[in-house]
Simulated assay, not measured.
Amino acid sequence: MFFNRVTRLFNIEYPIVQAGMVWTSGWRLASAVSNAGGLGIIGAGSMNSQLLEEHIRKCKAATNKPFGVNLPLLYSGVEKQIDIIIRNKVQIVVTSAGNPATFTPLLKQHGIKVVHVVSSSRFAKKAEAAGCDAVIAEGFEAGGHNGREETTTLVLLPLVCTSVEIPVIAAGGIATGRQMLACMVLGAEGVQMGSRFVASEEASSHPDFKNAVINSNEGDTIVTLKELTPVRLIKNDFYMQLAQAQKNCATAIELQQLLGKGRAKKGIFEGDLEKGELEIGQVSAILKDIKPVKEIIAGTWLEFNEALQKPLK
Results as ranks from 00 to 15, higher is better:
residue 207 P to I: 03
residue 18 Q to W: 09
residue 68 G to L: 12
residue 102 T to A: 12
residue 130 A to H: 04
residue 132 C to Y: 07
residue 268 I to N: 03
residue 178 R to V: 10
residue 252 A to K: 14
residue 117 V to H: 02
residue 90 V to E: 06
residue 45 G to M: 09
residue 149 E to W: 14
residue 141 E to M: 12
residue 144 G to I: 08
residue 95 T to I: 03
residue 301 W to C: 03
residue 304 F to M: 15
residue 156 L to G: 03
residue 182 A to V: 00
residue 245 A to K: 14
residue 101 A to S: 14
residue 89 K to V: 07
residue 200 S to A: 10
residue 164 V to L: 01
residue 37 G to R: 06
residue 289 D to E: 15
residue 207 P to R: 03
residue 89 K to Q: 15
residue 200 S to P: 09
residue 288 K to H: 15
residue 117 V to A: 04
residue 77 G to M: 12
residue 148 R to S: 07
residue 113 K to E: 09
residue 231 V to Y: 12
residue 185 V to W: 06
residue 39 L to I: 11
residue 186 L to N: 00
residue 75 Y to A: 05
residue 101 A to T: 12
residue 302 L to Y: 13
residue 162 T to L: 02
residue 240 M to P: 00
residue 93 V to M: 11
residue 219 G to N: 02
residue 131 G to V: 09
residue 313 K to D: 13
residue 99 N to A: 09
residue 85 I to W: 08
residue 138 E to C: 04
residue 298 A to Q: 13
residue 259 L to A: 05
residue 145 H to Q: 13
residue 242 L to M: 01
residue 251 T to S: 15
residue 240 M to I: 08
residue 69 V to F: 10
residue 258 L to G: 10
residue 193 M to V: 09
residue 4 N to H: 03
residue 28 R to F: 10
residue 191 V to L: 01
residue 106 L to N: 01
residue 66 P to L: 02
residue 121 S to F: 13
residue 191 V to S: 00
residue 32 A to K: 01
residue 12 I to L: 11
residue 117 V to N: 02
residue 32 A to D: 05
residue 227 E to H: 07
residue 270 E to R: 02
residue 26 G to Q: 04
residue 11 N to L: 06
residue 41 I to R: 01
residue 114 V to K: 05
residue 263 R to P: 04
residue 220 D to L: 07
residue 12 I to C: 11
residue 72 P to I: 05
residue 254 E to C: 01
residue 203 A to S: 14
residue 129 A to L: 15
residue 277 E to S: 13
residue 49 S to G: 00
residue 181 L to E: 00
residue 187 G to Q: 07
residue 302 L to W: 08
residue 262 G to T: 07
residue 171 A to D: 06
residue 58 K to W: 09
residue 99 N to E: 14
residue 290 I to L: 10
residue 139 G to W: 11
